[in-house]
Design a protein around this nucleic acid. Structure first.
Length: 160
DNA sequence: GCCAACGTTGGC
DNA sequence: GCCAACGTTGGC
Protein backbone atom coordinates (compact mmCIF):
# COMPACT_ATOMS: atom_id res chain seq x y z
CA UNK A 1 0.00 0.00 0.00
CA UNK A 2 2.78 2.42 0.78
CA UNK A 3 4.55 3.29 -2.44
CA UNK A 4 8.30 3.43 -2.04
CA UNK A 5 9.44 6.84 -3.17
CA UNK A 6 12.73 6.81 -5.04
CA UNK A 7 15.64 8.41 -3.28
CA UNK A 8 17.04 11.73 -4.39
CA UNK A 9 20.66 12.71 -4.76
CA UNK A 10 22.48 15.79 -3.50
CA UNK A 11 25.86 17.38 -3.05
CA UNK A 12 26.96 18.99 0.22
CA UNK A 13 29.95 21.31 0.45
CA UNK A 14 32.21 21.46 3.45
CA UNK A 15 35.59 22.99 4.06
CA UNK A 16 37.76 20.05 5.12
CA UNK A 17 39.75 22.24 7.51
CA UNK A 18 36.47 22.72 9.37
CA UNK A 19 34.79 19.38 8.85
CA UNK A 20 36.03 16.70 6.45
CA UNK A 21 34.66 13.41 5.19
CA UNK A 22 37.05 11.55 7.50
CA UNK A 23 35.65 13.61 10.38
CA UNK A 24 32.22 12.32 9.39
CA UNK A 25 33.52 8.74 9.39
CA UNK A 26 34.84 9.33 12.88
CA UNK A 27 31.69 10.88 14.38
CA UNK A 28 29.28 8.66 12.38
CA UNK A 29 26.46 11.22 12.51
CA UNK A 30 26.59 14.97 12.04
CA UNK A 31 23.93 17.67 12.02
CA UNK A 32 24.09 19.63 8.76
CA UNK A 33 23.23 22.94 10.38
CA UNK A 34 24.22 26.54 9.87
CA UNK A 35 22.98 26.76 6.28
CA UNK A 36 21.83 30.38 5.90
CA UNK A 37 21.10 30.67 2.23
CA UNK A 38 17.50 30.37 1.07
CA UNK A 39 18.18 28.38 -2.07
CA UNK A 40 20.31 25.89 -0.15
CA UNK A 41 17.70 25.74 2.61
CA UNK A 42 14.98 24.98 0.09
CA UNK A 43 16.97 21.98 -1.11
CA UNK A 44 17.46 20.83 2.50
CA UNK A 45 13.68 20.94 2.89
CA UNK A 46 13.24 18.65 -0.11
CA UNK A 47 15.49 15.97 1.39
CA UNK A 48 14.15 12.71 2.74
CA UNK A 49 15.70 10.24 5.12
CA UNK A 50 17.60 7.71 3.01
CA UNK A 51 18.64 10.12 0.27
CA UNK A 52 22.31 10.05 -0.72
CA UNK A 53 24.74 12.94 -1.13
CA UNK A 54 28.25 13.54 -2.32
CA UNK A 55 30.44 15.07 0.38
CA UNK A 56 32.45 17.78 -1.37
CA UNK A 57 35.59 19.44 -0.04
CA UNK A 58 35.70 23.14 -0.96
CA UNK A 59 38.25 25.89 -0.34
CA UNK A 60 41.12 23.45 -0.22
CA UNK A 61 44.20 22.60 -2.25
CA UNK A 62 42.43 20.04 -4.44
CA UNK A 63 38.69 20.70 -4.36
CA UNK A 64 37.11 17.24 -4.62
CA UNK A 65 34.26 14.97 -3.86
CA UNK A 66 35.61 12.96 -0.94
CA UNK A 67 32.83 10.53 -0.18
CA UNK A 68 29.21 9.52 -0.18
CA UNK A 69 26.98 10.19 2.78
CA UNK A 70 23.39 9.39 3.59
CA UNK A 71 20.70 11.78 4.72
CA UNK A 72 19.94 10.14 8.05
CA UNK A 73 16.89 12.16 9.13
CA UNK A 74 14.05 14.01 7.54
CA UNK A 75 14.47 17.80 7.64
CA UNK A 76 13.95 19.47 11.02
CA UNK A 77 14.34 23.06 12.25
CA UNK A 78 17.99 24.04 12.64
CA UNK A 79 18.44 24.29 16.40
CA UNK A 80 21.23 26.87 16.08
CA UNK A 81 18.78 29.54 14.92
CA UNK A 82 17.33 29.62 18.47
CA UNK A 83 20.70 29.69 20.24
CA UNK A 84 21.60 33.27 21.12
CA UNK A 85 25.21 32.29 21.69
CA UNK A 86 25.58 30.84 18.18
CA UNK A 87 26.88 32.65 15.14
CA UNK A 88 23.87 31.13 13.40
CA UNK A 89 21.32 32.65 15.78
CA UNK A 90 18.45 34.32 13.96
CA UNK A 91 16.33 36.72 15.99
CA UNK A 92 13.59 36.58 13.38
CA UNK A 93 13.09 32.84 13.82
CA UNK A 94 10.49 31.49 16.23
CA UNK A 95 9.74 27.93 17.33
CA UNK A 96 6.33 28.30 15.67
CA UNK A 97 7.81 29.69 12.49
CA UNK A 98 11.40 28.52 12.11
CA UNK A 99 13.26 29.99 9.20
CA UNK A 100 16.17 27.55 8.84
CA UNK A 101 16.38 23.82 8.31
CA UNK A 102 18.85 21.03 8.96
CA UNK A 103 19.21 17.30 8.40
CA UNK A 104 21.65 14.78 9.86
CA UNK A 105 24.15 12.98 7.69
CA UNK A 106 26.01 9.69 8.09
CA UNK A 107 29.03 8.35 6.17
CA UNK A 108 28.51 5.65 3.53
CA UNK A 109 31.83 5.29 1.75
CA UNK A 110 34.88 7.25 0.71
CA UNK A 111 34.89 8.13 -2.98
CA UNK A 112 37.41 10.52 -4.51
CA UNK A 113 37.13 12.58 -7.64
CA UNK A 114 38.54 16.06 -8.03
CA UNK A 115 36.81 19.13 -9.41
CA UNK A 116 39.26 19.05 -12.33
CA UNK A 117 38.31 15.45 -13.10
CA UNK A 118 34.61 16.30 -12.82
CA UNK A 119 35.08 19.08 -15.38
CA UNK A 120 36.56 16.57 -17.82
CA UNK A 121 33.47 14.33 -17.75
CA UNK A 122 30.77 14.64 -20.36
CA UNK A 123 27.21 14.74 -19.12
CA UNK A 124 27.64 17.09 -16.19
CA UNK A 125 26.88 20.26 -18.10
CA UNK A 126 23.78 20.84 -15.96
CA UNK A 127 25.46 20.26 -12.61
CA UNK A 128 25.25 23.47 -10.56
CA UNK A 129 28.62 22.76 -8.93
CA UNK A 130 30.38 23.27 -12.26
CA UNK A 131 28.57 26.46 -13.24
CA UNK A 132 30.63 29.61 -13.16
CA UNK A 133 30.14 31.60 -9.99
CA UNK A 134 27.98 28.97 -8.32
CA UNK A 135 28.38 29.20 -4.56
CA UNK A 136 25.48 27.01 -3.53
CA UNK A 137 26.49 24.76 -0.63
CA UNK A 138 23.60 22.34 -1.01
CA UNK A 139 22.62 21.32 -4.50
CA UNK A 140 20.71 18.58 -6.31
CA UNK A 141 22.33 15.87 -8.44
CA UNK A 142 20.26 13.91 -10.97
CA UNK A 143 20.31 10.08 -10.89
CA UNK A 144 22.20 10.10 -14.20
CA UNK A 145 24.79 12.54 -12.90
CA UNK A 146 25.11 10.47 -9.73
CA UNK A 147 25.77 7.26 -11.63
CA UNK A 148 28.17 8.95 -14.01
CA UNK A 149 30.22 10.43 -11.17
CA UNK A 150 30.27 7.19 -9.16
CA UNK A 151 31.41 5.21 -12.21
CA UNK A 152 34.11 7.72 -13.07
CA UNK A 153 35.41 7.86 -9.50
CA UNK A 154 35.64 4.06 -9.33
CA UNK A 155 37.39 3.88 -12.69
CA UNK A 156 39.90 6.48 -11.51
CA UNK A 157 40.56 4.70 -8.22
CA UNK A 158 41.33 1.44 -10.08
CA UNK A 159 43.94 3.17 -12.20
CA UNK A 160 45.64 4.70 -9.19
C1' DG B 1 46.55 36.54 -1.86
C1' DC B 2 43.63 37.83 -5.74
C1' DC B 3 39.41 38.55 -7.60
C1' DA B 4 34.93 37.30 -9.94
C1' DA B 5 30.46 36.19 -8.75
C1' DC B 6 26.90 36.28 -5.80
C1' DG B 7 23.83 37.53 -1.74
C1' DT B 8 22.48 40.88 1.67
C1' DT B 9 21.84 45.33 3.63
C1' DG B 10 20.16 49.77 3.98
C1' DG B 11 19.56 54.58 2.30
C1' DC B 12 16.70 56.92 -0.66
C1' DG C 1 11.58 49.10 -5.41
C1' DC C 2 16.18 50.50 -6.91
C1' DC C 3 20.87 50.06 -6.46
C1' DA C 4 25.47 51.11 -4.36
C1' DA C 5 28.22 49.34 -0.89
C1' DC C 6 29.70 45.71 1.51
C1' DG C 7 30.64 40.88 2.98
C1' DT C 8 31.27 36.08 1.64
C1' DT C 9 32.44 32.16 -1.18
C1' DG C 10 35.63 29.51 -3.37
C1' DG C 11 38.61 28.49 -7.46
C1' DC C 12 42.92 29.67 -9.04
Amino acid sequence: MSPISPISYWLLKSEPDVFSYSDLERVKLEPWNGVRNYQARNFLRQMKMGDLAFFYHSSTKIPSIAGICQIATDPTPDTLQFDETSDYFDAKSTEQNPRWTMVQVAPVQALEISLTQLRELHGLEGLALLKKGSRLSVLPVTPLEWQLICNAARAISKVN
